[in-house]
Amino acid sequence: MLPFKTAARRAEAQDNDPAPARPLAGITQLQQWFGRPATFRGAMAGIVLLLILGPFVFSQYITVIMTNALLYVVLCLGLNVVVGKAGLLDLGYAAFFAVGAYTTGILTLQFGWNFWASIPVALVAAAISGVIIGGPTLRLRSDYLAIVTLGFGEIVRFSARNLEITGAASGLSGIQQPRLFGWTIDSAVDFYYVFVVLAIGAVIASIRLSDSRIGRAWLYVRHDEDAAEAMGINRVAVKLAAYVTGAIYGAIGGIFFAVNLGAISPESFSFEQSVLILMAVILGGMGKIPGVILGAFIIVLGPELLRDLGELRLLVFAIGLLLIMLFRPSGIWPGRTQ
């Protein structure tokens, strides 16, 4: 055999391997432990039980904060599909949240619809907006995509602020609380339980999607678009499915956010909101469901736990986040090990 730079080629191929993430003993063990189906089910049952018993222990204030954290779990799991799974950077995710909230708000207030009847319409509206943002951006990558999605988020917010039907700058208020079989969902505790159900549903849906044909396709397209296409995967369809799925999660969060507060305004769906959700996803570990849940809780509960520090709390919280990203650049939850 004559030399064909075989040694060089071989070395090149091996260099492509990414350095394995530094193991963090405690969490790695936790992850392995979670990996076993029996313990995973047990842990999940435990967490669900704690969530159900929560309001008996929590003060009204903590119940409200926890409700917000659970809303973030839904939103973060939705953005995780777009950013974490399909690898499409989205800086305007709050737009989908807004589409859900405003659709329900407008239909119930301006048109007198029943709350439950507005849900399918809001989901369809979110899916359509997912296609609208997804369609033109499919050829773009990372930084360009970030700018376009940021623009989309701002367009939605500015539209809401200037249109009459959305109540312009003051937004919509007096959104009716929903009734279910004679039970009016109105107290803080009621809504807490609604969000417990939504968050659990979002977690189950995410786990099931991860372990499916479409969930794997998102990863294939994220890792190597060309190889994915060569395997017969329709890149366009797979990315659109990610946007639409993410949009539906966002809309579900928005629908119940609107009836929980009873009032929505354009400022609830600011760029800052999009960034907070994205931060939670990156902090917890993109693409990793338990990590994203953890990230959502940290982002919501962190500033609350630091409330005693007064004005310094956001500074301390920011430094804390920086330190986490410095030592765990790919998120708190560890990546897959062998």
Binding site: H223, D226, A227, A230
Partner: peptide, 9 residues
């Protein structure tokens, strides 16, 4: 020609 496996999978 160059290996194109999906990393981390």
């Amino acid at each position: 020609q160059n290996l194109r496996l999906f990393r981390e999978m």
